[in-house]
Design a protein around this nucleic acid. Structure first.
Lengths: 195, 195
DNA sequence: AAGCGTCCTGTACGACTGCCCTAACCGTAG
DNA sequence: CTACGGTTAGGGCAGTCGTACAGGACGCTT
């Protein structure tokens, strides 16, 4: 079916993607070069251009892989929640494990910025995020939250923002964030004020 | 007091900072080079190293200048709010003017990431953000919002997150965000659920 | 006119960049 | 044995990188 050389090749390809996922947060998206990428993966620079058409192709694929993985894990966690409050707690609990200088977090933000300079990447990331927001909204709706789509959008945005602030080492305590966010999913009564 | 040459020099220095503020979002923090910086400012590359010790010094100073300006403007807007709900509306109204691909927004995010690789920059940005959060919390407290510090932290984080998502072109509609966030500052009653 | 402070130019250096091309490798098939 | 597909090594090209350093240009003071 496939030669042992081909199998080794695929493994090298994976190592290159893993190296890219490490280097993007370490050095910044635009500072990942063919040479450092190859060195980290333990191959010579020319191998990079054998497996990929360009360096940015490696970066794009690596970033999308990581983001897909993160969102999938988050989805799995959310499946266990029995109420809207638990959804928030679950999201923030999984966020708790993420340190402010977490490479994954930095990689996601780097990807956001790279997307602002790469139409193709922007479209792919946009799809990923929109789909996740849809799944989150569906869950919130099932738990009786008002305006689930908008609430999910705010929730997702807040999550990213909290991550961003934690990256600065000045992020808020997540248990405090949780209690504040619970106000978002509390059953709605009569509005006390008018817009 | 100061020679005309010195005045010209200060003007060139400002042009370099302005050029940096343009180029950081355009090309990415690590991709701003001495040459493009000089070209954008209309000077020769060596002038950069006359006014600044290094390129990254230009970038740091330019980024902090912009962030200070943005937060000052936001503070001014917030001064006009007469209630917590108006604070939120004011914040989001000023956010409305910011497009998803707004250079200022991208500059801020780029700075966040650069801060993760530069201790000095991280400390300076952290101070800026913490101070703003403090002012926001004071305002919310004056308007009777519960847990003003935590709420301010969430609010500030949400704001950044919304910006981030808008950069992807998939950001939520801000009027929807506003109505959701109003739940945060609604007078608190008995909690309907226990954690 | 000479000296001075300030700002700017031109040039140079070694290191690094993305990408390409040719040659060699290695296991398998004939 | 030869031939072959798939992978890798090494070298090279044309360009950019950050920074340094010597000298020129300007205006103000003496």
């Amino acid at each position: 079916m496939s030669s042992p050389a081909a199998a080794r090749g695929r493994e090298v390809r994976q190592r290159l993607l893993a190296a890219a996922a490490e280097l993007i947060p370490e050095r910044g998206w635009t500072a990942v070069s063919t040479r450092v990428l190859a060195e980290r993966a333990g191959v010579t620079p020319s191998v990079v251009h054998y497996h990929f058409p360009s360096v940015s192709a490696v970066l794009n694929e690596a970033a999308l892989d990581v983001m897909r993985r993160v969102l999938d894990e988050l989805d799995a966690v959310l499946d266990g929640a029995a109420s809207a409050a638990e959804v928030i707690d679950a999201v923030l609990a999984s966020a708790q494990e993420v340190a402010g200088s977490d490479p994954t977090l930095l990689l996601v933000v780097e990807s956001y910025l790279a997307a602002s300079r790469d139409d193709g990447l922007r479209e792919q990331i946009g799809t990923l995020v929109t789909e996740f927001r849809g799944r989150l909204a569906r869950r919130l709706g099932e738990h009786g939250v008002a305006a689930p789509a908008d609430t999910a959008a705010v929730l997702a945005a807040t999550l990213d923002g909290v991550f961003l602030h934690r990256g600065l080492g000045s992020g808020p305590d997540l248990t405090a964030v949780a209690s504040v966010l619970h106000r978002l999913v509390r059953p709605q009564h009569v509005r006390e004020h008018t817009a």
